[in-house]
Design a protein around this nucleic acid. Structure first.
Lengths: 247, 247
DNA sequence: TATTATTGTCACAATTTGTTACAATAATAA
DNA sequence: TTATTATTGTAACAAATTGTGACAATAATA
């Protein structure tokens, strides 16, 4: 399995300084206009879309490597990040797409290039405030953009499977880990929060029960009202009160 | 991070045939006489206890490698096995204990021996029927035995941390994945099952509510009564009805 | 000032969970 | 044979949680 981002310095060395055989893939979730989105890279002169990824430096903790990859891709620090599964099937190993990417950049490589060997990849998912994350393509990629999770294009290798597993994990941990709040901006209305939950779970929730449940968590701080200009009662804004976060 | 089991063929080669930098550790749970137990290896001429582990062959799926390690250690096939976390901290890397093990076997090694490099380890937990698993020490270990989880001796490296994370995962998934049944023998009484749940969760449960909940799952098949010789009503035996298992 | 859409909250029902109670019943003792 | 003992299966009720609908409050607009 080959990996992204393919920094030129990685491609032109023999892999020295990085742990061999091991990579990281990150599924970076955002939420905008009622849609769950993830960050994907598109490589120059190929039609290949891939998850942002990278390698682990020999002097770096695994989780720190994931944090570094995330920061390089979103320009954000201190983001919610969770390891969720490690993918190590043999059928991940298909050097074809990576050869295409390397060729497209006019890079020399032999069939024994370290990037063309089999890789096991540790999957992480991240939750970011869509309005604050600034996607940054790496040097081999044309673009780094948000894509609707509900309407994903074909992805490189087993990345579709990785995304699905990330989403499954997200749903399972939605209540247990207060995931929702990491995908919204600093302040939000109860309706915002409910729309997010409904999108993640892909099911309608009852407004009354949802509000009662969220308030009963005791982690929301009520702020001023939000006068949206609509012909209706103005909703309160809320903020996630980290000091009230349960242990 | 060094790994177990250390098959001689692994120690005397240059690591060819295995994925470098990557290892597997398995936390094998059993339940006997009201105690949760795990399998540990004790190495010859050292006082080191370690989790059963191994490496991934280049031609082998990651999960299959875990399955192979488990089979080699317990002589059991088709065991419940779940990947739960991948451990990649730098402070795992401490070649001292492995040097001791290699020395104890009179093996030659240089400081650049592949086993002395840093390893990232994928953690799996397994649930086995204590009465059927036959622990098998590998060729470098003196013994492979069950130890009470509640009273573990010091373990090699970060294996204590791995065990704790496995137990945390076990508790979280106890209801969701019907874990309990994999730790009991083919048939069991409701009291057996409750004792297991109480041990895993480390808390008392109400007998009546527990029975109602288990029966409501619709996955238990009631068999004959068990005449235990005690001066009291005989309990029914139950069996896990796999055909009734929910999707 | 009436209308409209949405919000915050209450009220009640339905369901689930917590707890107690009690009859049934193996084995043993009287 | 019969009483005693410990444990079991289940019913009964209470408490807590969740599901659902209703309604007054209220910004903006007509």
């Amino acid at each position: 399995m080959m990996r992204e981002p393919l920094h030129p310095e990685e491609m032109q060395t023999d892999g020295t300084g990085f742990l061999p055989s091991l990579a990281i893939d990150t599924v970076i979730f955002g939420f905008h206009e009622g849609q769950l989105k993830i960050l994907l890279l598109e490589y120059t002169n190929t039609n290949l879309l891939a998850l942002p990824g990278g390698f682990i430096q020999e002097t770096e903790n695994l989780n720190d490597a994931a944090r570094r990859v995330l920061a390089e891709r979103t320009s954000l620090q201190g983001i919610y990040l969770e390891q969720f599964y490690t993918f190590g099937d043999l059928d991940r190993y298909d050097p074809t797409p990576l050869r295409a990417i390397m060729s497209a950049h006019g890079l020399n490589y032999s069939d024994h290039h370290w990037l063309l060997r089999r890789f096991v990849s540790v999957g992480y998912y991240a939750l970011v405030d869509f309005t604050k994350a600034i996607p940054v393509p790496d040097l081999l990629a044309d673009r780094c953009d948000w894509y609707d999770l509900a309407n994903l294009p074909p992805l490189m290798q087993d990345h579709q499977k990785i995304v699905q597993k990330a989403l499954d994990t997200l749903r399972l941990e939605l209540d247990r880990k207060l995931i929702g709040f990491n995908l919204l901006s600093e302040t939000f209305t109860m309706a915002d929060l409910q729309r997010l939950y409904e999108t993640i779970l892909d099911q309608k929730l009852h407004r009354s029960g949802f509000q009662r449940k969220m308030l009963s968590l005791g982690i929301l701080e009520r702020l001023d009202k939000q006068y949206s200009g609509g012909a209706h009662k103005a909703p309160y804004l809320y903020r996630f009160a980290s000091d009230k976060k349960p242990v």
